[in-house]
Amino acid sequence: MNFWEKLEKLDRRIIYIIITLAVVLPFFFRMGLPIKISPETKAIYDYIQNLSPTDVVFISGDYDPQVDAELTPMFEAIVRHCFERNVKIVVSNVYNPQGVGLVEPRLKKLAQEYKKVYGVDYVFLGWKYGYSLLIMGMGRDFKGTWQTDYYNTSLEDLPLTSKINNYNDIALVISLTGSGAYVAWIYYAYVQFKAKIAAGITAVMAADSYPYLQAGQLIGLLGGLRGAAEYEQLIHHPSLGSAGMEAQSWSHIAIILFIILGNLGYFMSRKKK
């Protein structure tokens, strides 16, 4: 067995250890690299920045625990921004019941941090059955479709939601998702009701969403942990997203080296044959 063959047969556990080190070590040895802000992220930031305290942003946490690591930093950054700007938020989980358990505690925590009043500054709707029916129903009759919030209070009784009738009263819908839920928001909320849609999506989906962005169906896009990190930079509150970016850097380098080494081995051993 020559060198290249040995390299090809490398035990996978060695690879696992290398990638673990590439992720963990950067937390201890920081380079402090700056993060450039992409226009997709800036578009959402600018939009929220220009909202007034009477405007409402509707955030739908359409994700489950599997992609929690990518989307919760986005959720927290956007909520922070809205709270800081005094923009009102209504949070729900239209497409994913699992999202309730991820979004609710974080929202409560942030609301306490910013001293926001439930029902006045923010409302949590939770999940209800309906998916696309719910999205369409909201365009006709917001309160009638949801009836109650997560804590079973009638939406009529909450000062914030009592004023929301349909998408005209919502300045922006943000769908945070690890699936195609944001496309459903485009089809059922943007197409028929002209609701403004922004998406925070996992990196897996990000490359596929550019046609919607270019067509103006999305006003902006947060792509994966990078998007979250950019948003955190914009609101000057580095948190989970930014912390991960250096680990992300080195692990990417590791993966690229793996691909190069792997291919070298492949070509070398093929040449021999």
């Binding site: 990518e70 992300q248 990417h252």
Partner: peptide
């Protein structure tokens, strides 16, 4: 990037 983000999380 997505897969690594999950582990980083």
């Amino acid at each position: 990037m997505a897969r690594l983000s999950l582990f980083i999380g």
